[in-house]
Amino acid sequence: MVIFMGIPFESNSTYYTDSQNQAFLEIVNPFSNMSLYAIQIIYPVLPTIDGTEYDENPTFEVSDFLVWAKAFKEHLEEEDSFLYPMFNGMKQIATSVIHYGLIRNEHQWRQLVSLYMAHYLEILITAMKDEGNHVSLNAYNKDKDNHLEMAIGNITFEEFKSTIYGRMFWHLYQPFGKFAFWGVTI
């Protein structure tokens, strides 16, 4: 695309820009040197990414999870372990929520999936313990149960910061995550 503003002329100079907006701002400013330039915008300048390369997730097994969340080892030793169904459920969700195409590094992707899963499994265990007797049919013991609420690490559950795994996850995923939620096609 060639844009003429002011007195049109062409030159061999090439002006690289991060975005079209930046170029347009320069162009509409009558005191800018660029208002006199003939501009050829070549976009995008980056090579086209092979869209199929990261379509398929790497494998993810219990052993991958235990690398980053060893505290869960004893709860996942048997397929009849109480945590196993939750592990499988969370695995399905986590491997699709954490886009491999966004991370593009097998090891880091496994780490993020593990931390994401560990965060929710910790919360599920807390819920299962039912220390506040919310799910119990026993009579509510006011002295004992009143202060027990769904608080983890002194922060009520509302964000990833409520567990240590969630904190680690969010610290690492934040730079990737901000691109994942705004409709950028990867």
């Binding site: 048997e78 009849d80 109480f82 299962m128 313990k129 039912d130 220390e131």
Partner: peptide
């Protein structure tokens, strides 16, 4: 002392 069983049986 755990509220839940470690295994589903």
């Amino acid at each position: 002392g755990e509220r839940e069983f470690r295994y589903d049986f």
